[in-house]
Amino acid sequence: MNIFRFLADLSHMASIVILILQIRKTKSAAGVSYKTQFLYALVFVTRYIDIFFHYVSLYNTFMKIFFVTSTIYILYLMRVQYKPSHDPNIDTFRIEYIIAPSAVLALIINHGYTLYEILWSFSVWLESGAILPQLFMLQRTGEAETLTVHYIFALGIYRLLYIPNWIYRYVTEGRVEPIAFLASLIQTALYSDFFYIYYTKVMQGKKFELP
């Protein structure tokens, strides 16, 4: 475990905690994309099925349980607890456009033709595009709650930090993971616009508003 990966995991965790606190505090899920949360739940469930047959460490197991349960909890908050606050009419990105290419990529680029490896690869590709409904929604509404913006930022930082993690692991262990590395690059590229606006507006204490 190196510092990049550890900070990445912490920022990933922080993003989820921020989102849960926001929804609970404001008793509203306005501005949060249900579709993005659903895709993340799918990412975690398809990737972490190995929890039952592949033990790595207590840290690893704990984090997997955290990501699966917290994301399903967010779905519950949005779908049941604070349902009226979520407006499906502005959450209109077609998730087939993310799921289908991810499935195709998983079938072409994977670490072996077993159900587990294909699901793993699918989850990695899916994760790189899962933020799109949320970014699309942000673009439609033009502005967002500060906390929603911090949530997206923390989530972006998490995958950005996995890039130096992979460079570090290549240098120190000689390990290369082309699938996760490429997916990290794609995901970070999708965030680049967002990062730019975050930097020019939110960091300077202004409200998040799209130009």
């Binding site: 990966r5 995991d9 990933h12 190995d50 592949h54 790595v56 460490s57 690893n60 984090m63 997997k64 990501f67 670490h111 072996g112 490896e117 793993w120 692991r169 290549y170 262990e173 000689g174 390990r175 290369v176 993971e177 082309p178 996760a180």
Partner: peptide, 10 residues
Amino acid sequence: AVWNKVHDEL
């Protein structure tokens, strides 16, 4: 370089 799968990450 080792190209095989790394299963120890999240």
